[in-house]
């Protein structure tokens, strides 16, 4: 049975669209105050899972409990305690920044006075106070995203769901957003985040699941996943205009991944591995040694890169 602390509890959760199986019987628990990530490429089933958790899409099979309630029967009550940041912002572009918060808060039947008071704080939090009376349309992507997060917080939810919060944002906008999410996390808000960015998952998530083709391929804290499915370092060899010589490198490091334009050698000592490469007379166009990341975990789990 679901533990008392579980904000979300899923067993055998599935979503089918006709013949397509988007989510294929997954199990997970998310604890109160936790920051939990769903990581995977497009089409892995992340958004379908999010929509089921947000009680916007009925499950096809399995058991799901959100905030101790059943989405099938308690949808409105659950949604009343969830803040959703959808992939597309679905903001009212013709209206002002402040109006967007006012209108959204009114869907929850919050008194105007309460929303106005919260809006002031939330706009400061989202660094949008100066733009309160401007229409949304001309705002930058980062500003719209922050407004969407502020909007999701207007009901002061116990659980904030963010579907690809930083997709399409420039690095600066992304870091500002991460900073805001950190602050929410430190205030004890439970965060559920989907992303196909490894660095985002590493930055924000206490625990995550790697999804692939509707299933969970691995789960755990980011560092544990890296420990288990990768090595400390990765040596990347680039070969411009030539097929990477996979055969010649066999046996170096713990594992070798041959990609169309480069070879990844997983080794605890990247420099040492490079020495072996040179000894075998292989001369890559360029090489570098880097820390291993979740990208490598995903590659090792599925044999594919996340960029698609």
């Amino acid at each position: 049975m679901p533990s008392v602390d579980a904000v979300i509890w899923a067993r055998g959760l599935s979503k089918r669209f006709g013949d397509l199986v988007a989510v294929d019987g997954i199990d997970f628990d998310i604890a109160k105050g936790e920051s939990f990530g769903f990581l995977g490429p497009n089409g892995a089933g992340k958004t379908s899972t999010m929509r089921m958790i947000a009680c916007m899409s009925p499950k096809s099979a399995g058991t799901l409990r959100v905030l101790g309630m059943d989405p099938e029967t308690d949808g409105p009550a659950i949604r009343g305690r969830i803040g959703l940041v959808p992939q597309d912002d679905s903001l009212d572009l013709q209206l002002t920044v402040l109006d967007n918060l006012m209108i959204y808060g009114r869907y929850f039947d919050l008194p105007k006075r309460v929303i106005r008071e919260r809006a002031e704080r939330l706009l400061a939090f989202a660094e949008l106070s100066e733009r309160a009376d401007d229409t949304v349309e001309p705002l930058s992507g980062g500003m719209k995203r922050r407004l969407t997060i502020a909007r999701a917080l207007v009901s002061e939810p116990d659980l904030l769901i963010l579907d690809e919060p930083t997709t399409g944002l420039d690095p600066q906008a992304r870091h500002l957003l991460w900073d805001r999410l950190y602050r929410l996390k430190s205030e004890g808000v439970t965060l559920v985040i989907t992303t196909h960015y490894m660095d985002e998952a590493e930055q924000l998530c206490d625990r995550l699941v790697v999804m692939d083709k509707g299933r969970i391929a691995a789960s755990g804290p980011p560092s544990a996943l890296i420990d288990r499915y990768s090595t400390k370092e990765v040596l990347e060899l680039r070969f411009l205009g030539a097929d990477p010589p996979g055969e010649a490198l066999r046996g170096i490091g713990e594992r070798i991944e041959v990609l169309p334009d480069r070879v990844l050698i997983y080794a605890d000592d990247g420099e040492g591995a490079m020495g072996e490469v040179t000894d075998r007379g292989v001369e890559p166009t360029a090489w570098l040694v880097r820390r291993s990341s979740l990208e490598d975990v995903f590659l090792s789990l599925t044999g594919r890169t996340l960029i698609d």
């Binding site: 947000a54 949604r79 969830i82 903001l91 009212d92 959204y104 929850f108």
Partner: peptide, 12 residues
């Protein structure tokens, strides 16, 4: 504008 989806993410 997807207003309906914004609404359906709330208790509506």
């Amino acid at each position: 504008i997807r207003t309906y989806y914004a609404m359906l993410a709330t208790p509506l």
